[in-house]
Structure formats: C-alpha cells, structure tokens
C-alpha cells in the first residue's frame, strides 16, 4: 500500500497509457466487426469457413503478433499504433463471430416486414436490425473490452508503456507491490469499462429496461 501511494502519479499515468492503447482497439474492432459480421452472416455456405478463419486469428499468441505485425503494416515494434492494430485484430477475431450471430438471430419475418412497409436496405439495417441485434452485440463488445484490457500489458516486454510496465519493472527490481498494483489496476479498469458499457447500453437501448420490468411483473 505504501509503495502504491508513493508511486501513485506513475500508476495513474500508466493507467492513462493503458486506456489510450486499449480503447481505440476496442472501438475499432467493434465498428469493423459490424459490417463484417453482417456480411458474413449472409454468405450461406461461406459463413462458417469465414468465421472459422477469423477465429483462427485468435489462436495467434499476442507477443509474436506484436513482433510480426510491423513487417505487414510498416510500423515500429514499439509504436503505439502497432499495439493498437494487433489488439484490434484480436478484438475482431472475437467480435466478428458475435456480430454474425447477433444479426443471424434477428428474425427474417421482422426484416421482411421492415422492407414491406417501405424501409430502404439501409433504413432497415439502422432502425430495425441494429437495435434488435443490440443486446447480443453489447454482450460481444463486453467480452472484447475485458480481454483487450488484459492483453495490452504483454506489450510492456517490448518497452511500450502501459500498466504492464508495472509487471516488467516490478519483476526486474523484485518489487511485489508493483506487480500487485498492476494486476489490481488492470482488473479494476476492466470492471469500470465494463460497467460503463452496460450504462451506455442502457442509454442506447432504453426499451430493454421496460421489457425487463414487464417480464418481471
């Protein structure tokens, strides 16, 4: 506790670094997964092979990907962008499947009804499919956010600053509280972001609450 108090400014600044690496990756993975998942869901026979290969991306261990990625996108190993792109790919590996399943669960009748009342393709997507897929999309997004926040720390062994730096410093100098503080802050960050996502979900999908209340009474 003394160690954490004495090093509070550093812990807080590393927390900010951590967020700056993880939040853009989570947002990018979510926004890219929406069109990819929607398209993948409609591919019929190609659906499963496509989602399977996206899932295989998740099999790639994070540290090697941080090192291999620069040859593909021309960044440096220690660039923040390199870490963000790698984390986005991991996020996509999880999120494309969730998005495809979320859109796949929207009933065909509802979709056809939207078209029958004169909705354009885009209109039907934005005002009917997206809201109906919303809860499942949110569930996928929460998994991506938690796993991304915990994955970021690995990049510390390459010298990228994040809460993971508390692990590398702590290990090299034999300071247990440093590692403990890093673990606690990472889990705390994951929980806080998760609660924020749940809150945002309530704001964006207010009908869910009334449904829950009706189901309860």
């Amino acid at each position: 506790m003394d160690w954490a108090l004495a090093n509070l400014p550093r812990i807080l600044s590393l927390t900010v670094d951590h967020l700056l690496l993880s939040l853009p990756a989570v947002a990018a993975a979510f926004l890219l997964a929406l069109p990819l998942g929607r398209v993948a869901d409609r591919l019929g026979r190609l659906r499963e092979p496509l989602l399977g290969s996206a899932g295989l991306l998740y099999a790639i261990p994070s540290l090697p990907l941080f090192i291999v990625l620069p040859i593909l996108i021309g960044t440096g190993v220690r660039d923040a962008l390199n870490v963000i792109v790698a984390l986005t790919l991991f996020g996509l590996a999880l999120m494309v499947r969730s998005a495809a399943d979320a859109f796949g669960a929207v009933s065909q009748d509802v979709r056809l009804a939207a078209v029958a009342v004169g909705q354009s393709r885009w209109g039907a997507f934005l005002t009917v499919e997206l809201p109906l897929a919303g809860p499942a999309l949110l569930a996928g997004l929460r998994v991506v956010s938690v796993s991304t926040i915990s994955l970021v720390s690995v990049s510390a062994v390459l010298g990228v600053a994040s809460l993971g730096s508390l692990f590398t410093d702590g290990f090299q100098r034999g300071i247990v509280p440093s590692i403990a503080a890093g673990i606690i802050m990472t889990v705390l960050l994951a929980v806080v972001v998760d609660l924020l996502l749940v809150g945002l979900g309530r704001l964006a999908m207010p009908w869910q609450r009334t449904q829950a209340r009706r189901a309860g009474s």
Binding site: V146, G164, F167, I179, I183, T186, A190
Partner: peptide, 10 residues
C-alpha cells in the same frame, strides 16, 4: 480480466 504477464511475473 487477469493480465497473463502480471500472473507470471508475480
């Protein structure tokens, strides 16, 4: 949410 690097260094 547990960071692997944290667990392994601890």
């Amino acid at each position: 949410a547990l960071p692997t690097l944290g667990i392994i260094t601890l």
